[in-house]
Write a protein that binds this DNA or RNA. Sequence first.
DNA 1: AAACAGGCCTAAA
DNA 2: TTTAGGCCTGTT
Length: 281
Amino acid sequence: MQYIVHENEIELRGISDFDPVKIFESGQCFRWNPAPDGSYIGVAMGIAASVRSEDGAVFISGGEEDFKNVWYDYFDLGRDYSEIRARVSIDPYTTEAAEYGKGIRILAQDRWEALCSFIISQCNNIPRIKKIIEALCRLCGDRIEFRGEDHYTFPSAEKLASMEPEDLAPIRSGYRAPYIISAARSVASGETDLEALSGLDCAMAIKELRRLEGVGEKVANCAVLYGLRIPTAFPVDVWIKRAVEEHYPPDFDPSVFGDAAGLAQQYIYYYIRSSNAASGH
DNA sequence: AAACAGGCCTAAA
DNA sequence: TTTAGGCCTGTT
């Protein structure tokens, strides 16, 4: 993959499997929103940015330093997704889902942000998850300016560790507030070392994360896949559960996808959600 | 109005 | 080990 440095953005030329819409609308992240001009604007890793695709090229705002230090990893640009798509396509259903979802990538998000975001996600729909997270960032994240607008970074675990659940009342997260604070304290104190967990195998990482209040099987799988970048995680929410029940035998085991299980899940999720777009939005 | 939303926790079999 | 009910809140 080659890139060209422009004055205020990086151009990715000849890149395959990078569709901003599919990446940002496949339910893995909550802080990227479509702008009137068709680009997506969001805040990740403490940086506000704009991403758009045009004539087969992708443009990411910012300079070469941010691109090399942050966005290259965040967008998982070192991975060959066409190769993974081929490996995922082991049966007619995932083959169809993978073709439909071509362009999806799994973002390597900030570990704490992913964990916290999916704690918030439980028993909520995506619009409300985004609303709560935005309010959280506005409440106690750092303000940054981008193209004349105010944006807010995701608050650190340390910052949230110093707060009480009641302090989160303005974000209207309900019963999740104590979970957020409790997880933040565990991470900030080092009791839960997310970076260290990244090096564990999937099952062990999930087991460790499940010790946190408000982190069950589903949330742990999401935190492991999107935050700890462990590709074998296979989060099962109600939609995936439906798809699996419908298209696979009762003894289905996602390990048949090998280390592409997470991406297989992502294709299936995007596929089933798109065909049911009427609900949930 | 009552049920549900990308679950989790606790209590009870 | 599995199952039922409750939970903050917003929306339909």
